[in-house]
């Protein structure tokens, strides 16, 4: 993996040397230099903090709502019938349409939260729905015969079934939340966010900065994702009671 990254960095370096125009393709070294000078400014950390908070909040809200709504859908067929077309609609609508609509509906400060929430919700919903439906029917029958209570059933039967589905849908939703969240910031331009910096880098043709911000988004998305996945894995392990049902 490390060797592959090194190879592509070399390709990038060679390509930028061949082109010879930083405005068109800055070299990796120029991007690193830009990043180094950016991190020394307070506004960098402010933008990172703002975007992280807003996009992260949107993800977490989408996660919570997706799990909750899918649980209700599995439990009550009427909720399932009502939510199915709604989730399909949210999933199929282009993110740009939502961004424009959201600019009308909500304050641009919360735009990335709203967009991130909308992108995450249907993905988590369908993952949770499939996971809960995948619960072992024979174990559920056993639980019914033995009168196993709701929470014990959740922890011993539903949660282990849900875990792989929820983790894979989270991984998918994490990437989507960052991509759509930053896109929303670029269009809505809330003050002091990564999206605003990215937009400014574009209009002032500061290509090394543009590349550096892109690198920052990739790193943030990766780190945030790792944190969430590890947190979920730990929570699932503790909750599923591997060792004790209570």
């Amino acid at each position: 993996m490390a060797l592959a990254i090194l190879f592509w960095l070399l390709v990038w370096q060679v390509a930028s040397l061949v082109i010879g125009q930083e405005l068109f393709l800055p070299s990796p070294l120029a991007v690193l230099r830009a990043l180094f000078s950016m991190v020394q400014e307070q506004v960098f950390w402010l933008s990172v903090g703002n975007s992280l908070l807003r996009i992260g909040l949107g993800f977490l809200l989408g996660l919570a709502a997706g799990v909750l709504l899918a649980s209700f859908s599995v439990a009550f067929s009427l909720v399932d019938t009502l939510l199915r077309p709604l989730m399909l609609l949210v999933r199929s609508t282009p993110v740009a349409s939502f961004i424009i609509l959201a600019l009308v509906w909500v304050n641009s400060r919360y735009l990335s939260t709203f967009i991130s929430f909308l992108m995450v919700l249907p993905v988590i919903y369908s993952g949770t729905y499939a996971g809960l439906r995948a619960a072992d029917k024979s174990l559920l029958e056993m639980a019914a015969v033995f009168h196993v209570g709701f929470w014990r059933r959740m922890r011993a039967i539903y949660l282990p079934a849900l875990r792989p589905f929820l983790l894979s849908s989270c991984e998918l939703a994490l990437g989507m939340s960052w991509k759509s969240g930053v896109a929303a910031e670029v269009i809505g331009l809330p003050v002091g966010t990564i999206g605003e910096r990215l937009y400014q880098a574009k209009i002032y043709l500061m290509m090394p900065e543009l590349f550096a911000w892109t690198l920052v988004i990739i790193l943030l998305s990766g780190l945030f994702g790792k944190l969430i996945i590890q947190g979920l894995k730990m929570a699932a392990k503790n909750l599923s009671g591997e060792g004790a049902p209570e």
């Binding site: 024979s138 174990l139 029958e141 056993m142 015969v145 033995f146 009168h147 196993v148 014990r152 011993a156 039967i157 282990p160 599923s240 009671g241 591997e242 060792g243 004790a244 049902p245 209570e246």
Partner: peptide, 28 residues
């Protein structure tokens, strides 16, 4: 009435320990 059963299949929760599988159906 309240029943208990050994099914033809074991029907144990694979991630729970042997002890926890029994505890699952019992009051604390």
């Amino acid at each position: 009435v309240r029943c208990s059963c050994v099914f033809q299949e074991d029907r144990l929760c694979p991630g729970l320990t042997a002890e926890a599988n029994v505890q699952l159906v019992l009051p604390h």
